[in-house]
Simulated assay, not measured.
Amino acid sequence: MRKHTALILPAALAAALAAAPALANPATTLTEPQVRAVLEQQGFTRINDLEFEDGMWEADATSADGNRVDLRVDPSSGKVFAEDMVSTLSADDIKARLTAAGYSKVNDVDFEDGIWEAEAERPDGADVKIRLDPTDGRILGVEND
């Protein structure tokens, strides 16, 4: 299995953002054509099944080295997460970050398809599913569970 570090190339993202000035606002969600452009700029080809699901863009594609990979793309930043990406954080790191962010009852912490996923309770008592970046623990998305 090939190990990947962060796949987003600053120049590729800058070009995609320059092509879509409205994306300067990080709260803006990338559109399907913009996600496809970011993936192509990073060398992915045969991009199939590109769809927005569970708060992230998902697709399968052929990597520059010819392997088929499942991908997830952060809809705000355009950062790409490949299924075989290696995390620099442990499950305990993720639990600690979520606890520090005010979540409680953190459970079901799993590294899946290149990102961390966990279930927890928000301070208001709502149960949520959280997705986190495997390199820095940044929360990518939170949705009601």
Rank of each mutant, 00 (worst) to 15 (best):
I130V: 15
G125D: 09
A118L: 04
E112R: 11
W116S: 05
T99V: 13
D113Q: 11
P134I: 11
G102L: 08
S104Y: 13
I115Q: 00
D133N: 10
E112G: 06
K129V: 15
V128T: 10
A101Y: 04
E121L: 12
G125T: 11
K129I: 14
A118S: 03
A118V: 08
D124M: 05
E117P: 00
R122K: 14
P123H: 07
A120Y: 03
F111V: 09
I115T: 08
K105P: 08
E119N: 12
K129H: 15
E121N: 10
L132M: 14
G102C: 09
W116N: 05
G125A: 10
G102W: 08
G114Y: 05
D133P: 03
R131L: 09
A118Y: 05
E121I: 14
T99S: 10
R131G: 04
W116A: 04
V128L: 07
V109I: 13
I130Y: 02
F111R: 04
L132Y: 08
W116P: 02
A101P: 01
V106Y: 02
R131E: 07
S104E: 14
E112Y: 10
E121R: 11
A120M: 06
A120D: 07
G114C: 04
I115C: 00
K105F: 12
S104M: 11
D124H: 06
I115V: 15
D127C: 07
N107P: 12
K129W: 13
D110C: 01
E119D: 14
N107L: 13
A118N: 01
D110W: 01
L98P: 01
V109C: 00
T99W: 08
W116I: 06
F111G: 00
E121Q: 12
E112N: 12
A120C: 07
V109H: 00
E117S: 02
D108C: 06
E121S: 11
R122A: 13
A100E: 13
A100I: 12
G102P: 04
A100F: 11
G125S: 08
V106Q: 04
